[in-house]
Structures are given as C-alpha cells and as structure tokens.
Computed example of a mutant assay.
Amino acid sequence: MAIITNHMKVMNSALGKIGGGAIMAEDEDTELAAQVVPTYYSRLKSLLGMCEWSFAGRTYKLDAIAKVAENDYDTASMIFNNGWRQAFSLPGTRIGLPRKVLTDPRRPNDPLREYLIEGGVLYADREQVWATVTVMPDPTVWDPQFNLAAEAIVAADLCVPVTHDANLAKDLRQVAEGSAQENGRGGLVGRAITSEAIKARTAAPLWRDPLTDARLR
C-alpha cells in the first residue's frame, strides 16, 4: 500500500492548482511522478536556502575527523595541513553552509567566528564544535506562509511540463514570486520572508546582563 507522505500532500496540492492530477507514491513508475518529485525537491531546497527559516534550523554537535595523514593531518606539527588543530564533519543532511558555528549550543548568540570550511569539512582550534544548519523539515512544521509559497511556486514550475499552459505558469509565478524585478522574493515568497523576519525580531533577546554573561563564559 502506498504511503502518503506530507511532502506528497504538498506536491498534490500544487498539482491541484494546475489541474494536473495526483501521484500516489514518490517512487511510482509514472511520467507524472518523474516530473513532479525532482522538481518539488529542487524547488524546496532553493526556498529553504533563501532565508534562515526558524522551522528549518537544527543544531548538531559535529563529529571530529581522525587525525591521520589520509585526512591531511601533519603528525609532527600536530595540525592539519591548512594550519588548524581540529577538523569536523558537517552534517550530510544540511542545505548550504552552517548558519552559525558554536562552542556552546546553549549560547546561540555568541557564535564561534574563527574557523574555516573547506570541502565540506569545518576546521577550528576548538575541541568541541556545534553547528546550526538548515535541514529539510517535514511540512507539518512549516510556517503557513511558507506552505502557501511552496505550493504556488511548485505549481508554477510544474505548469508547463504537465499542462503545457505557459500563460497559467506566468500567472502562478507572479503570484508566487512577484514581478521579475523582485528577483523571486516578491509575492507569496516575499510575504513568507517578511513573516519570518518579524518572528526573528520578536525572538531576539532584548536585554543582556554582562555579569551573567561573564559567569557563563
């Protein structure tokens, strides 16, 4: 029996906006699924990378990379070949670069600023490092404005390959992204970004006590 995932519900909602039918499984052997699934996930990754969405952030403790020659570690000088003492693997499920690199996950407003990222590896002079990254969250935790934007832009992306209706695709894209001058950040996408910015300002700390900060260091 096919499992209807929450991502599929968004896909089918987008298809419904263009009268494109529905899919029953992401891996079903149909031309429609072959068009919908890769287009959906490609667009979703693009949207998630446009903003530090609060619902899509996750903090991980990074795994240290073995200090061996195969990992470009110089045993004699006790540093990696690029001059850093420690190296860490970044989460493979992340989208883009880390939002923040931390030495204490309880202090997200005091990030580590001295580090280097090369080839998907994070180098630092710290024994323990955490990173907050963007992941692909389940649609059940999406902000409603983001959900509307995702459905609309996926519908626009699918309109021509599924229905061959270029005029409808143009109309849907304008609703989703606004005018061409807004570079994909107008329309419903722009509203979602604005909503996220308002939430971020509301969540930001309004006051800090230097004495308390000093004790916690």
Rank of each mutant, 00 (worst) to 15 (best):
M1W: 02
A2I: 13
I3L: 13
I4D: 08
K9E: 11
M11Q: 10
M11S: 06
S13W: 15
A14I: 11
A14L: 10
L15I: 14
K17A: 07
K17N: 09
I18E: 01
A22V: 06
A22W: 04
I23F: 10
M24C: 08
D27V: 03
T30S: 12
Q35R: 09
V37W: 00
Y40C: 12
Y40S: 01
Y41L: 05
S46F: 04
L48I: 00
L48H: 09
F55D: 02
F55H: 07
F55Y: 07
F55W: 12
G57Y: 03
Y60T: 12
K61I: 10
L62A: 11
D63Y: 05
D63Q: 11
D63R: 06
A66S: 14
K67N: 00
A69Q: 06
E70D: 10
D72H: 05
Y73F: 15
Y73L: 05
D74I: 07
I79V: 15
I79D: 00
F80K: 05
N81I: 15
W84L: 03
R85G: 00
S89N: 12
P91R: 05
P91H: 14
R94M: 13
G96F: 13
L97D: 04
R99M: 04
T103C: 13
R106S: 14
R107S: 03
P108Q: 00
P111W: 00
L116C: 04
L116Q: 15
E118M: 11
E118T: 11
V129F: 13
T132D: 01
T134L: 06
V135R: 06
M136V: 08
D138V: 11
P144A: 03
P144L: 06
Q145P: 00
N147W: 10
L148D: 15
L148K: 08
A150E: 01
V154H: 10
A155I: 09
L158V: 07
C159S: 08
C159R: 03
P161T: 01
T163C: 12
A169L: 03
V175W: 15
E177A: 13
E182C: 02
G184Q: 05
R185G: 11
G186S: 09
G187F: 13
I193T: 04
S195K: 09
K199C: 04
R201L: 14
A204Q: 11
A204C: 02
P205Y: 08
W207N: 05
R208G: 08
P210R: 02
L211T: 07
L211F: 07
T212W: 00
R215V: 13
R217H: 14
